[in-house]
């Protein structure tokens, strides 16, 4: 990275998932010299490359009839952005000043001025939020099935959630575990039909319906879960060696509180069908402003829109 002090970038992109990197490709091809604040390593989905970095096979991204591994897809996105001149800072944005133009985006060691800012910070996976869950993180409780499935070979584990992410994790983990109990608060899944069919047909996956995890138990490592049936109110203990949680996402917008308009749920508000935020010159794309579709392809699409919106706005205000 070579942003000299005093240098004003045309476009700074915060985030490097499908939205941020697509915006980078389009902005770079428009000769806007985008600088991408890509985030920093993490074992959660909030990391360079975004949520797909923790997934295995992506089967619904068009152009890959045989599927592609999530990290491979994101490496390809980045290589394409790099090819056209996008530059990267491997740090998290720590502050955004949108009160005057040019805007300022700060990280731990950089402070960059930008005529336009594209926010693509995405969303991160929610945890249960239990005290013992945090204590046993890394000792049976995991945020990364692809990293930690291996350690549960020959043991019984649990996955919490009922969407595509939960079923994908359950199916992946069934390769290692002797039994995967899928704990879901309702009686039906909201996952896609194809994922439901696969999970229901998998002999290692059992379903615990109408149930929530109320405590995570174990001394030095996870031993069991206290599970409550939400219909009967009855608590049972389920012995497990591993716990993986896929109960939804929360947008990464803490940085923008008081800076950009957002919903009560934290998702950024954009105007109409475009990517404009309430601050002229700041655009938002991907999961950070989309709680409806939340797909790699929709994120990439809105990243493209943000770059085009930014390019047009820069041309008009120059």
């Amino acid at each position: 990275m070579a942003a000299a002090a005093g240098d004003v970038r045309d476009v700074v992109i915060i985030g490097s998932g499908p939205a941020g990197l697509t915006a980078a490709i389009y902005a770079a091809r428009a000769n806007l010299r985008p600088l991408v604040i890509e985030g920093e390593p993490s074992s959660s989905s909030d990391q360079p490359g975004g949520q797909l970095m923790l997934t295995t096979e992506v089967e619904n991204y068009p152009g890959f009839p045989d599927g592609i591994m999530g990290p491979d897809l994101m490496h390809a996105f980045k290589a394409q952005a790099t090819r056209f001149g996008a530059e990267f800072v491997t740090e998290k944005a720590t502050g955004v000043d949108a009160s005057e133009r040019p805007f300022t985006v700060a990280t731990y060691s950089h402070s960059v001025k930008a005529r336009a800012v594209i926010v693509a910070t995405g969303a991160r996976a929610l945890l249960l939020g239990l005290e013992n869950e945090a204590r046993l993180m890394g000792y049976g409780v995991s945020t990364c099935a692809t990293c930690d499935g291996f350690f549960h070979r020959g043991f019984e584990i649990a996955v919490v959630g009922g969407g595509d992410s939960a079923l994908e994790e359950a199916l992946f983990l069934s390769k290692f575990a002797t039994k995967v109990t899928l704990i879901h608060r309702r009686k039906e899944l909201r996952a896609s039909r194809i994922m439901q069919d696969r999970a229901l047909a998998n002999p290692k996956i059992e379903f615990l319906w109408d149930s929530v995890v109320v405590d995570v138990l174990g001394d030095t490592s996870l031993e069991s879960l206290k599970v409550r049936n939400v219909v009967t109110g009855e608590d049972t203990i389920l012995a497990v060696h591993g716990l993986f949680v896929a109960i939804g996402h929360v947008p990464n917008t803490d940085l923008f509180k008081g800076v950009l308009d957002m919903e009560d749920t934290g998702y950024l508000r954009t105007v109409g069908h475009g990517t404009w935020t309430n601050v002229e010159g700041v655009f938002a794309c991907g999961d950070v402003q989309d709680h409806v579709y939340r797909q790699a392809i929709t994120a990439a699409g809105s990243g493209c829109m943000a770059a085009i919106d930014a390019e047009r706005w820069l041309a008009e205000t120059a």
């Binding site: 390593p41 074992s43 990391q47 890394g138 350690f151 591993g242």
Partner: peptide, 23 residues
């Protein structure tokens, strides 16, 4: 039980453990 795990040893003894990737 989770990787990356980083353990720091001094004089052969484990001193601290860092779990998960970090910046």
């Amino acid at each position: 039980m989770s990787i990356p795990t980083m353990i720091l040893f001094r004089d052969g003894e484990a001193q601290t453990r860092i779990i998960g990737a970090k910046g």
